[in-house]
Write a protein that binds this DNA or RNA. Sequence first.
DNA 1: TTAGGAGTTAGTAAACTTTACTAACTCTCG
DNA 2: CGAGAGTTAGTAAAGTTTACTAACTCCTAA
Lengths: 359, 359
Amino acid sequence: MLPAHGRRHNLSLVLQMLYSVGAMSRADLARRLGMSKVTVSDLVAELIESGHAVELGPSDQVRPGKPATLVDVNRTGLQAIGVDLAAHEVLRAAVLDLDGNILARAERPIGDDTGDAITARVLELVDEIVSAATAPILGIGVGTPGIVVAGGVVDTAPNLGWRDVPLRDLIADATGLPVFVVNDADAAVHADYTLGNGGDDLVLVKIGRGVGCGLIVGGQRVRGAHFAAGEIGHVTVGTDGGAVCRCGKTGCLETWVSAPRLEQALATAGDDSPLREAGERLGIALAPVVAVLDLAEVVLSGPGHLLAGPLRDSVEQTLRDRLLARPEAELTVRIAHDSDDIVLRGAAVLVLWDQLGVV
Amino acid sequence: MLPAHGRRHNLSLVLQMLYSVGAMSRADLARRLGMSKVTVSDLVAELIESGHAVELGPSDQVRPGKPATLVDVNRTGLQAIGVDLAAHEVLRAAVLDLDGNILARAERPIGDDTGDAITARVLELVDEIVSAATAPILGIGVGTPGIVVAGGVVDTAPNLGWRDVPLRDLIADATGLPVFVVNDADAAVHADYTLGNGGDDLVLVKIGRGVGCGLIVGGQRVRGAHFAAGEIGHVTVGTDGGAVCRCGKTGCLETWVSAPRLEQALATAGDDSPLREAGERLGIALAPVVAVLDLAEVVLSGPGHLLAGPLRDSVEQTLRDRLLARPEAELTVRIAHDSDDIVLRGAAVLVLWDQLGVV
DNA sequence: TTAGGAGTTAGTAAACTTTACTAACTCTCG
DNA sequence: CGAGAGTTAGTAAAGTTTACTAACTCCTAA
């Protein structure tokens, strides 16, 4: 690696510190980062020049000596675009600030569209939301259903009728902005990890038309050998059979745990037993994963009325039953915050990570 | 990070390149690493001075220009110690060269020892094997059963009667050498990954008195939130009951898949159905893990007469049955090479990684 | 008025680069 | 067969970049 690589690393350390802790003086930064005041002053100067950081004026803190000048990430002067292609019935996009706050929204109905028609609709949506930005845009993050391989190509997304779509390049060519494309569950887990205070070892299960998950292991997102990490919907659960799945197999997780299937089962059952059974099946499927990875948190994302309550409780109880109890290794099962916008936020977070240097 | 960090990184890049590709000239190193010839020459000089690299004399290659001088990692001039505390009935240690070849061995029987007596026996063993080295020792790697937390402390190892044993410091104090302590399955997966040409996404299941596994995900070893990644033995498998386990639960993986249990079942059954059933149960347990992590390889390590054949075939078939078929995402189920020495080699590999800078 | 902290300037050390050179070889031709 | 041309490896010197320490000015509370 070159000295320039070290420099870039240090620039991103400054941004990470400001992003996570908040505004502080150069001297404070130097102390926290273990660098000299001169070095930090120089790094901050470069970040101010590039527009990634701003001075906020003197500190309110009263103590001896020259008043400190606070600097921060340019929270309001930079924006990111998040795009969610996995929502129910619509394509969604938003302008977000660096804190993940949504400043503007745009939508396009999916209707009966598929394939190229969807692609055209996505580009219209992106054009509209880019126009709505009120500050320089760092980049565009996209959360899509299906499998995304290297180079931002959507390998397969059956729900959108996509095969081998070079989505990153299509959007980058149309906008001239940096573009990052990931699976929607991966976007969601990034949002939880960064904005939802998730720990370094967590799995987020996202329940929509199907069921998928995003994984953070040792503070890193898991991509998988074929970019297909998180594809849990078609794993056979348990050893006592189950319904026939649309994929042709029997007893897939998705036959218990997906939004359409749960709504239908609830309507038919008249009580909440489908939720408890779904939670049990999800717990059975997740137990080896939690054990092998030694995860600390299981996060559920999706319609709150389905996930909160009996389903969540059942996941927790089933994991407790099927794993060896270790008091010092407490496992948390919780509902994600703000599931409706979690993919938008997560897509935007990926932009921040890449453009501000948290990669 | 400081310029010195970059320097250290570059020194380890040179060693990694030599280690993986083999001897080459400074000019060749410069081309492959994208550095200037002057920089590489300087880095190599430092490595030669420290004894980590050696010049091998002129290249045999005939072509115009000044003859190249080949340099390589000091493969025969440096050694590492590997220690295996997870073998059946014995504590084992070896001197290995940088290629993982075993040059000398030592053993101590466990007998009825437990707790502090075992600790004393380990220190005797280490003393003996250190004396057997014929070149400077880079360090000592130890693969132990149980859970190893930060700082090389064995948190729990019931089979050895250990609780909260500061094994790394005990051995380091006794020898004055750098010491690295990991779980035996983690050591095994490192050996497979580095010496066994394993890919970046693999799980190694190690079957001995119990059953545990080591994981490489995205080229990185998985440690877990509580340093307990890989503890798969006490996960409940399936939904149709099973034997009562020594932990008190029912249907734990270990009740099907452990060496003692398999030997006993084979003696009773008179045919190989216990192997096939064990393989099926292991496949059931691993299916969600393989799917969620998108693994490319499942490696089985342990007694060959148990693992090769019906058990392996059953693991493969069960995974095929319970996962969605994706032709482009071929999963390999294979038997590890040299299971008897895999922990010794893996422990030594950790030394190489840490001391020669592959961390 | 003093002490101590924030921030800046000047100069230096380390780690890289580029430029230019020498050393050592192969190939070609008279 | 020997001299000269051409090529590559490796090194010396000079330059650049990125960090540091030393020394200073500025500022304010006590």
